[in-house]
């Protein structure tokens, strides 16, 4: 479960005040809003990458407001994937588990399992240069999921994909979500994407989050 309780964020001239929302465990939540409305800021705050001025962020009954990103045990998929260019696909999927102290063989086994689920097994030995947008997103998703986080934060993961690739990615994410049972916060500006993916939908407008 992820719960935002009255969080306020200020970044220069931009401000969000008393934002509250909740996504129950294993549910797929979608946050919609126009460009510049603060969707990514909320997501980065949940990840611990942006400081909040007040309020609380609760993940699985634990107050993570003041925890560092790595201690929140969540997965983050930024726009365009943002892969580590010097690592092979296999190494970057296994990166999180290895950093968290898993045995290397277990981490690589998990990388293979996720690669199989996301249909990127054939890419495991490749480096990110030359991967298509859809492939990069699937690698980024596998990397975020590898250490079995409680929550996955997806920042417009499908916005740069063509229609066919997007549909395929949607069904892969949904299938994986059903299989692994993680909670999702998916950010998008597309109403159709929100309808297709979300079990719970929220909309951000004029600094407030409302159920859509």
């Amino acid at each position: 479960m992820v719960s935002l309780k009255n969080i306020s964020i200020k970044l220069g001239e931009f401000a969000l005040d008393h934002v509250s929302m909740e996504i129950p465990t294993s549910k797929y939540g979608v946050l919609m809003g126009s460009s510049g409305s603060g969707k990514t800021t909320i997501l980065e705050s949940i990840c611990g990458l942006k400081k909040i001025r007040s309020g609380k962020i609760i993940l699985n009954e634990i107050d993570v407001t003041n925890l560092r990103p790595g201690d929140r045990h969540l997965g983050y998929v930024p726009q365009e994937g943002v892969l580590f260019s010097t690592m092979t696909v296999k190494d970057q999927i296994a990166f999180g588990p290895i950093v968290r102290g898993w045995k290397k063989e277990d981490a690589f086994e998990r990388a293979k399992e996720l690669a199989s689920s996301l249909e990127i097994e054939h890419l495991l030995s490749r480096k990110p240069l030359g991967l298509s947008g859809g492939e990069s997103q699937r690698v980024a998703l596998a990397r975020a999921l590898a250490s079995r986080p409680n929550l996955i934060c997806l920042d417009e993961p499908l916005s740069a994909l063509d229609e066919d690739t997007r549909d395929k990615a949607c069904s892969l994410i949904k299938r994986l979500h059903e299989k692994e049972g993680f909670t999702v916060l998916h950010i998008t500006h597309s109403a159709s994407e929100a309808e297709m993916m979300g079990e719970l939908a929220f909309r951000i407008s004029e600094g407030k989050v409302i159920s859509a």
Binding site: C47, G48, L74, V82, F84, S85, M87, F95, G96, R143
Partner: peptide, 29 residues
């Protein structure tokens, strides 16, 4: 180098130092 790579590394369990040595420095070689 995209600073979001370090952000991703931080969410994957790295501290600033580990993100620097494992993600930033290899790309800056």
């Amino acid at each position: 180098l995209d600073p979001r790579q370090e952000n991703v590394a931080l969410t994957l369990g790295c501290n600033r130092s580990k993100a620097f040595w494992k993600v930033v420095l290899p790309q800056a070689s």
